[in-house]
Design a protein around this nucleic acid. Structure first.
Lengths: 266, 266
DNA sequence: CGACACCTTGAAGAGGTTCAAGAAATGTGG
DNA sequence: CCACATTTCTTGAACCTCTTCAAGGTGTCG
């Protein structure tokens, strides 16, 4: 499962460490809201190199709104008109698709710097729900303007293509997980992917407070919530992790990796 | 599971019926090889409306090579350099990803008019194998030129975005299938999707000669080949389909639909 | 503090896998 | 064109993983 993609943004104050939104609620600073992409200090993590001043200005023009989704509310829902892509500034989302008979499937969990909304381009209607698992702030990038600017800024055009391709590759890995792996392997892969993405954002790679329920993890991994719970307990029993409700500590990430690789441990 | 996407091409001779490549080997006519996108009679199925003569000419310039993959051979493999997208002119492909321990997962089956190679954009390396399940002819569209022309032809730019988005949405549906459905539901969904795509191409929506093995179907659906075989037998026993090796006849497509919808039949 | 959502654990059972054997189709070389 | 090898498919039986159903525990928030 590859890492998600960054776009622009995540305007942390230069020189500081990102606020630990995964161990406590983010303390939103109003100054952040005014930060332009052009002076975002981790832009290099998001927007690939090589924009001149003029191009940068154009990119700045993209961000029109900064919607806010409270915990539990939807950023958009299946059937909503598609108008924009959303880059997560802070917070945590899940995306879900529903079958006609009402069954839900979590298709992904998204954190700061990652994009949601790509599903809407195909038909101009969203086909999944994006639900905030904690209070979440995003940048809205009107897609018509992305396409407009992309005709002039080649790096932006290519970047959009890369983002979509990475999402396709990510989903290939989820398919591999759902099609081939046992419960323990799925959960190990899930944890490793989550920890890697958190680590890239400056968080601990050994401790996490999960933002999602066992049921949501189960939905993502194609398991029941009971199986997720039991598998957490089993990993804890084997001294691979420590679990206390939503707090998970990784004791032996190499063991997790061995589990993912089907190397039946010990 | 939504239908795949068409791009340009599939240059059948105007006024003729597509050759029944799914009931017999395609009889390749050399005239086809010279057909330009601009006078392809089913272009409207592939390239959305509204290109003027000049734009159409540009699009024609895209297709540089027409590679051919014999049954069993690879169009590209994971690790290969990514240079082009491929539109299938005739034939049938599977795409597969591999985990480190060698397990394979079929991520999709592609037929005429559909695109492969989108996975390579992210890193300039392909991340999956594209294997021909029958002799397959494709149009190679160098991606650098797609991006170049897309800056001038807005409709092309938007089309590329739509194609990628549709692939993302398709994969969402596969995740729903793998995460939520029983064997019988998976196979029913698979058959309905396959028949719909064949029907869109002028083939019967009730008869098909499968190009893939039970093992490949199983890999795609997250099942073993034995389960696929047993499930075919069960559907046949219930008079929903008739199966004779690779020949499948749909007797009651509404029953298939009911199975997909969890409406426990009878 | 009480209600509610979430999590854990047990026991029974279903669905799918694994292992095994044989049948049918396909391909190959003489 | 036939005989043989190989691949693919089918079916059975035993087993195992995960699900389902159930009950009780823990945490959280108004």
């Amino acid at each position: 499962m590859s890492a998600h993609v960054n776009f622009f943004v995540i305007p942390f104050v230069p020189g500081t460490v990102p606020p630990p939104s995964h161990t406590s609620k983010p303390d939103l600073d109003k100054r952040f809201l005014k930060t332009a992409c052009s002076n975002c200090n981790i832009r290099k993590m998001c927007m690939p190199i090589g924009l001149d001043a003029d191009e940068l200005k154009r990119v700045d023009e993209l961000v029109t709104k900064r919607p806010f989704a409270k915990r539990g509310s939807a950023l958009f829902r299946a059937g909503d008109a598609f108008t924009a892509l959303y880059v997560i500034r802070s917070g945590f989302l899940k995306t879900t698709v529903s079958s006609e008979d009402g069954h839900d499937q979590v298709t992904g969990f998204q954190m700061a710097g990652e994009i949601v909304g790509l599903d809407g381009i195909a038909t101009d209607l969203h086909t999944c729900d994006a639900i905030a698992l904690e209070d979440t702030e995003v940048c809205a990038l009107p897609f018509a303007r992305i396409e407009e600017i992309a005709t002039q800024v080649k790096a932006l055009q290519h970047h959009v293509h890369k983002i979509m391709s990475r999402e396709i590759v990510r989903e290939h890995h989820v398919m591999l997980l759902l099609g081939n792996m046992r419960a323990e392997e799925r959960l190990a892969a899930f944890l490793l992917n989550l920890m890697q993405r958190l680590h890239e954002r400056g968080f601990s790679s050994s401790d996490v407070v999960l933002r999602m329920t066992r049921e949501e993890i189960g939905s993502y991994l194609g398991l029941t919530l009971e199986t997720v719970s039991r598998t957490f307990s089993k990993l804890a029993e084997d001294n691979v992790i420590t679990v206390n409700q939503r707090h998970v500590h990784i004791q032996d990430s190499e063991a997790l990796q061995r589990i993912v690789n089907h190397e039946l441990c010990r």
